[in-house]
Simulated assay, not measured.
Amino acid sequence: MGLHAQGFIISLLVLLPNLIFIFFPPRSVPGSLDSVPLIFTLLERAGQITCFMMPILFGRMIAAEPLGVSAILMALCMLVYYGCWVRYYRSGRAFAVLFKPWLGIPVPMAVFPALYFLLLGVWLQSWLFVVPACLFAAGHLVNSWSVYGHVRS
């Protein structure tokens, strides 16, 4: 356990597009969206907080781990995720594009950050990282799928 720049970078890579999103919000946001059971929102939030804080708190452990296939797959997840953000901005910030499938993958802007954090747990071979990633994935995917269903219809 201990702080290290790599831990900050791992969290920042996912957060950066979301920080930009604050200043350039979507257009054409529906007036109301179907809500999902509260448990999924709670899982998503608990998973988000934990997934973003764990790499920071365990940065030294991450820095000590040699790069492997999981780390390469994490980088690919980020490339696809950033590509989805580019698609969103090129669309004129259309809300529906945030949930639009890409190459047959539904809600890719939810799938790829979830995979990124799951792969971090695999890379580190640590349940301490896998469990929060699963909580985040469950909540984020269900919430995003619900919104996608609403904007699709």
Rank of each mutant, 00 (worst) to 15 (best):
L19G: 14
Q48P: 09
L57N: 11
L15H: 09
R60D: 02
L79R: 11
W123A: 01
K100Q: 15
M74F: 03
G121D: 01
A64P: 14
R152A: 08
R45E: 07
L98N: 06
S11M: 07
V122I: 15
G7D: 11
A110I: 05
F95G: 03
R93L: 04
L3V: 13
V122S: 03
L57S: 05
Y81Q: 10
R152H: 15
L103W: 06
N143D: 12
T41A: 09
G83W: 07
S144C: 04
N143C: 15
V151H: 05
M78P: 10
P37K: 07
I72T: 15
G31V: 13
V80E: 06
L79D: 10
F95T: 02
M74R: 13
S146P: 06
Y148W: 04
V130D: 09
F99C: 05
A94N: 15
L128M: 13
L135T: 11
L16Y: 07
L118T: 12
S11I: 08
M61H: 15
S28T: 09
I105Y: 00
A114W: 04
L42Y: 15
G7T: 13
Q125P: 10
A75E: 04
F23Q: 10
M78D: 09
G83Q: 03
V131D: 04
V131I: 10
S28R: 08
A138F: 12
L76G: 14
P26C: 02
P25S: 05
P132K: 06
Q125E: 13
V36E: 04
F52K: 08
M61S: 13
Q48E: 08
L79Q: 10
G92W: 05
I72R: 10
G139N: 09
A133D: 00
P37T: 07
A114N: 06
V14Q: 11
